[in-house]
Write a protein that binds this DNA or RNA. Structure first.
Lengths: 344, 344
DNA sequence: CGCAAAATCCAAAGCGCTTTGGAAAGCATA
DNA sequence: TATGCTTTCCAAAGCGCTTTGGATTTTGCG
């Protein structure tokens, strides 16, 4: 069944047709009759003919490939948030006949990789991960004319390119307000890295809620770093050691929240009783539904699926590649507040 | 500086040389003088010339691309273990001028993807992830003549293909023996999915240790599932609810071990005091060194870097692609037992 | 039936690279 | 100076597709 690969020439000879006609039949051109199209498709399927991507892309200039450049820092760590995003994106690519090229980039390597992609025409477009406050990649990609969609967005001129983001500000404002309404006045924020745009917006939401309730913002209650479990653990321990420790915590990721849990356990504190916790939850699949039990999730959380975001961002990029003159598309997703056991 | 892309023809015209000579100069062929080679390289760098991958692969039949097909199950979850493996592999590819093509495969989709890769000549080779007990992919890849390296291995005839694996059996035997020497007779095993080859070997190591110490193997002390946090939590809770609960636990992954920690905390048990814990640790980068504090790691663990495994597997595959007639290579890595705080 | 228009199909020219089979130039030797 | 080897370079033929411009056949209609 899975015989030797067949090329267009051989296929067309089998059919007694020209390569032109066969190519057009398979690519859905109108100038070929339905009868011959059917005949071509059938034999193509039977001989297991598949067009060579190199030849097709040489002829068309399109690669049907999307590049993902994931930042890995010095320790070459791929944050698990990316894997779920990739999983979603990869699903959308498969559905549209695209493929995903993955590169990891240490600090400062990204620009060179994008230039490389562009000058070799290696990919048709890229997804920009983890935009910083005013990310230089945007200008670069525009200048080299490479289609892109940003997951997240940068500070200003966000209308000039396509992005997909969650409403981080309103999410954290919502969460903080819930804690305040429950009577908390001292709320710790275990934020992500504040050179990242999303972290800045989350902090802004947190501060907006405090301000509108006339609660003083204390820098001792705010931590910022890469969202790992150990960081969550240490930052929580540090704040609990303050003279006036927070009575509630907001976490920027479920990973750091899990570290926080470990810290509470060390201190003999019960989440939901002694300390309230709200965490942002990207719905990382390997943790399942917020580590939920049957009916009630464990964490009270602000949740939005990063996998769904990956899927949608991929779709946006593909439409943009196919319709280059179309105006940039922006999508802002609202975030759900889900009540769990970590707030009373 | 980053001007419009230049092709070979233009470059050779600039130099007053033929395309042949320029191509050979850049690809290190001996029949071109060092003087002209230098001249070619300089101008190529100056004009930012980069050969088109599609054209090169059409001409050579090589794609300089490696495929990774990661199983994602029904919920399309990419286990974070894969991300670290990918990160390591991607580093090796970059160093060797290769690139990484990522596909996710739901249940039963893998075979079709491999066939697709082969008939379209999309990649030069693939890495096989998560081999099951007697994995059909091995035979398939051999039959379609696709170079591959397996991360892990299958049951038998493992000498007939290239793989890189850790010594799961000796690791779990070592760990279990440590617990037995510390006086534990009831040891729970929170294993991975036992359709996976590595999980079978881990269980075999665990049972070997029990057997050689004349301890009865109780099926109630053994759990098996995909290695997620919630599974670790539930399985631990279940065993703790037994009439004679285990006094020690072995976990197949640090993710499940974290779930176990949460279960212990629910039951008011202190790891390292009331209950001993050893976990297999893939050194997932986002959890840092076994969630270690300053000098002493938290978990007592069997550790082996999955990122390093990714790097090495990639290297093995590349050598195999370049030397196709060479005998298959196998590498078995021993696993270190690191003492932490979770065993007294 | 005859003719223009529409429907089908095709030959051949690229796309940008590698590689085969020579040709021309440089060199030492006799 | 002529001879035979190297050295150094080149023209041209692919690799497998898409696409332009044109040829051929079929159809519609008076």
């Amino acid at each position: 069944m899975a015989s030797q690969p067949v090329n267009l020439k051989q296929l067309s000879e089998h059919l007694g047709l020209s390569q032109t006609t066969v190519s057009r039949a398979l690519n859905g051109f109108p100038e070929v009759s339905e009868k011959t199209r059917k005949r071509v498709q059938d034999l193509a399927a039977q001989l297991n003919y598949r067009p060579s991507p190199s030849a097709a892309s040489l002829a068309t200039g399109k690669t049907k490939t999307i590049g993902h450049v994931i930042p890995v820092g010095t320790h070459r760590m791929i944050n698990p948030h990316f894997s779920d995003f990739l999983s979603g994106a990869s699903e959308a690519y498969a559905a549209a006949g695209y493929e995903l090229l993955l590169r990891t980039a240490g600090p400062g390597e990204e620009e060179e990789i994008y230039r490389d992609f562009a000058s070799r025409r290696r990919v048709d477009g890229v997804i920009v991960h983890g935009p910083s406050i005013d990310d230089p990649r945007i200008a670069l990609l525009k200048s080299i004319n490479m289609p892109f969609v940003v997951h997240g967005r940068t500070g200003d001129r966000a209308e000039s390119y396509s992005w997909l983001d969650v409403n981080n500000l309103s999410a954290f404002e919502k969460g903080t307000n819930l804690l305040i309404k429950a009577g908390h006045q001292s709320i710790g924020l275990i934020n992500g890295l504040e050179s990242m745009n999303f972290a800045v917006r989350r902090r802004a939401g947190y501060e907006a809620a405090l301000n509108s309730n006339n609660i003083e913002i204390k820098s001792a209650y705010i931590a910022s770093a890469d969202m790992t479990e150990p960081y969550g653990y240490k930052a929580t321990l540090n704040m609990l050691a303050l003279d006036e420790p927070p009575t509630a915590f907001m976490y920027a990721s479920i990973l750091t929240a899990m570290g926080g849990l470990r810290a509470l356990s060390d201190c003999g504190l019960m989440p939901g009783k002694d300390i309230a916790i709200i965490t942002y939850d990207d719905m990382l699949s390997f943790l399942e539904s917020s580590m939920g039990e049957e009916h009630r999730p464990f964490f009270t959380s602000l949740q939005s699926s990063i996998q769904a975001a990956g899927r949608r961002a991929a779709e946006l990029l593909i439409t943009q590649i196919n319709q280059p003159d179309q105006a940039p598309i922006q999508e802002l997703w609202e975030v759900d507040l889900i009540l769990g056991k970590t707030t009373s």
